[in-house]
C-alpha cells in the first residue's frame, strides 16, 4: 500500500436528518446490542453461579488447577487495551488519525497478549486431560462433579475468546476506515462503537475472572 488516500469527510446517511441524530442512533443501537450480549453472557454467568452454588467442592477443586497469576496477567492485558481503545476514541474526536492508529495497534498488541496467555492455559489443560465431560481424564479429583467446572470453564472462556477475536477484527476494521474517512468531533463512530464493544469484553472478563479464578 504505497499510495495513501487522503481521508474524506463522512456524509450523513440518507435517512437521517443530521449528524447528531445519526450519532445518537448508532450509540443507542450499539448499547442495545451490548445489552443483548450482556444478557447472553449474563445468563451464562448466572448458570455458572448456580453451578457454584450446587457444586462448591467441584469448583474449589477445579479452581485449584487454574493459575491465578495467568488470570491476573490477562486481566491486566484487557484493562490496558481498554485504556488504549478509550484513548483511540479520545484522539479520534480530535481528528488525530495517526494517534488513533497508534492506539489501535497498541490495543491489538495487548489483545494478542491475552490470546497468547490463553493459549498456554488451554494447552496445559489439554495436556492434563482437564476437559469437559467424557473427555475428562484428569486424576486426583475427589469430587465426582469436578468435570462440570471444566465444562463451564471451556464454554465461558471459549465464548469470551470468540468475542475477543471479533473485537480484534473491529480494531483492524477501524485501522482500515481511518485511512479512508476523516474522524471529527461529530463523527468518529467506528472507533466509538468498537471501543464500546471492547469495553463489553472487559465487563464480561471482570465477572468471569473472579468466578473462575478467585471465588471458591
Amino acid at each position: 500500500m504505497a499510495e495513501v488516500t487522503v481521508p474524506k469527510e463522512h456524509e450523513v446517511a440518507h435517512h437521517f436528518d443530521d449528524l447528531e441524530q445519526e450519532f445518537e442512533s448508532h450509540r443507542l443501537g450499539m448499547w442495545l446490542f451490548i445489552a443483548s450480549e450482556i444478557m447472553m453472557f449474563g445468563a451464562l454467568l448466572v448458570g455458572g453461579l448456580l453451578l457454584l452454588y450446587k457444586f462448591p467442592a467441584a469448583f474449589a477443586e477445579g479452581r485449584a488447577h487454574l493459575d491465578w497469576r495467568l488470570g491476573t496477567l490477562n486481566t491486566f492485558f484487557l484493562l490496558t487495551s481498554g485504556l488504549t481503545m478509550a484513548l483511540a476514541a479520545w484522539h479520534a474526536q480530535r481528528s488525530e488519525q495517526d494517534k488513533v492508529r497508534r492506539n489501535l495497534l497498541l490495543s491489538l498488541a495487548f489483545a494478542t497478549g491475552f490470546l497468547i496467555v490463553k493459549y498456554f492455559e488451554y494447552s496445559a489443560k489439554f495436556h492434563h486431560g482437564l476437559l469437559p465431560g467424557n473427555a475428562f481424564s484428569g486424576h486426583g479429583f475427589t469430587d465426582p462433579n469436578a468435570h462440570v467446572f471444566f465444562g463451564f470453564y471451556f464454554v465461558a472462556t471459549g465464548l469470551h475468546v470468540l468475542h475477543v477475536l471479533i473485537g480484534m477484527g473491529l480494531m483492524v476494521w477501524c485501522l482500515f476506515v481511518s485511512r479512508k474517512v476523516k474522524f471529527t468531533r461529530a463523527y468518529y463512530t467506528p472507533v466509538e462503537q468498537s471501543g464500546l464493544y471492547w469495553a463489553l469484553i472487559d465487563l464480561v472478563w471482570i465477572f468471569l475472572f473472579p468466578l473462575l479464578y478467585l471465588v471458591a
Binding site: G47, L51, F55, L131, P132, G133, N134, A135, P144, N145, H147, V148, G151, F152, F154, V155
Partner: peptide, 16 residues
C-alpha cells in the same frame, strides 16, 4: 456444547 463435548451442565448422566 452438551451434545458435542458432554460438558455436564444439563445432562443428568454427567451430574447436570
Amino acid at each position: 456444547m452438551e451434545n458435542f463435548f458432554r460438558i455436564g451442565i444439563f445432562d443428568p448422566a454427567l451430574g447436570g
